[in-house]
């Protein structure tokens, strides 16, 4: 990658991050506006005043959508961070400690990966009492195994790499080897996985909320909006589902793009570009 396309990539990544930040801030500011009901303006189709239309209680759908996305993004950040850290700790522990620790952790990873994802999250959310805590626990406890497995194999491979063995024989301390050799190899994988975890987390949060195992219905969550709008679709109120759905897809695509850019920037082959 030459320096020009590196700059373009960086610009795109920053732009995506800025849009996401804007949505988060706007949604938080609009949280109260999203709750306002006004029956004099109910069921209005999209117009210049009400860009996304209004629902059966006269709530502004634009405000509700932004507030919902903002909540989704915040939950996504939290759960992606928790699950990535969990994956880092468990994956590195499995590889570094080996023996029975590795066997147990590998078994747990296989167990988690073996259960259908959505089912696992529903079970976890129920076990943690649904609501905000249930969603956060379900999403963060179900997303770590694939990254943990990746980091485990990476550490195993590094441990026996000739250059690490040479460093040991040259008398380099354990800490220096970890900092100089392990960190630069693991960090790109970790950061990329962290960013790419967001879209998954957001979609899954919306899905289990949609299915009724997540956030409670008074919260302006995208999953709640979508599942409520289902009953109004047949009466022709298409805007209730379309715009929030498109906005959700847009945010997820933005995060996925951001992850791809981060990966391109951190890719080992492009380090010296």
């Amino acid at each position: 990658m030459n320096s020009n396309s590196r700059r373009a990539t960086l610009a795109l990544a920053l732009l995506a991050a800025a849009v996401l930040l804007l949505v988060t801030v706007a949604g938080t500011a609009l949280h109260d506006a999203a709750m306002v009901t006004d029956f004099s303006r109910k069921n209005l189709p999209p117009s210049l005043t009400w860009l996304f239309g209004t629902d059966w209680m006269g709530r502004d759908m634009l405000a509700r959508t932004l507030a919902g996305l903002s909540l989704s993004i915040r939950i996504g950040l939290l759960t992606a961070a928790v699950s990535a850290v969990l994956a880092l700790v468990l994956g590195v522990a499995a590889a570094a400690l080996g023996g029975w620790v590795d066997s147990v952790l590998s078994w747990v990873i296989d167990l988690f990966l073996g259960i259908p994802h959505i089912l696992l999250m529903m079970l976890l959310s129920l076990a943690f009492g649904k609501g905000f805590v249930g969603v956060v626990a379900a999403v963060s406890l179900s997303h770590w195994p694939s990254l943990a497995r990746l980091l485990r194999s990476e550490v195993l491979q590094l441990k026996n790499a000739p250059y690490i063995r040479v460093a040991e024989h040259l008398g380099v301390s354990r800490l220096a080897i970890a900092r100089r050799h392990f960190l630069p190899h693991l960090l790109p994988q970790f950061l990329t996985a962290l960013v790419l975890q967001f879209p998954h987390a957001i979609l899954h949060e919306a899905s289990i909320t949609f299915l009724g195992f997540g956030l409670s219905s008074e919260q302006p969550a995208i999953g709640v909006i979508l599942s409520e709008s289902m009953s109004y679709l047949t009466t022709g109120r298409w805007w209730l589902a379309l715009f929030p759905g498109l906005a959700l897809v847009g945010v997820v695509v933005l995060f996925a793009r951001l992850g791809d850019r981060v990966r391109a920037l951190l890719d080992p082959a492009s380090v010296h570009a």
């Binding site: 250059y163 100089r180 630069p184 080992p268």
Partner: peptide, 14 residues
């Protein structure tokens, strides 16, 4: 030990 393959004996990211 001087390894047979020098490209494996140096860290590619350093």
């Amino acid at each position: 030990l001087l390894w047979q393959n020098p490209e494996l004996a140096v860290d590619p990211l350093l």
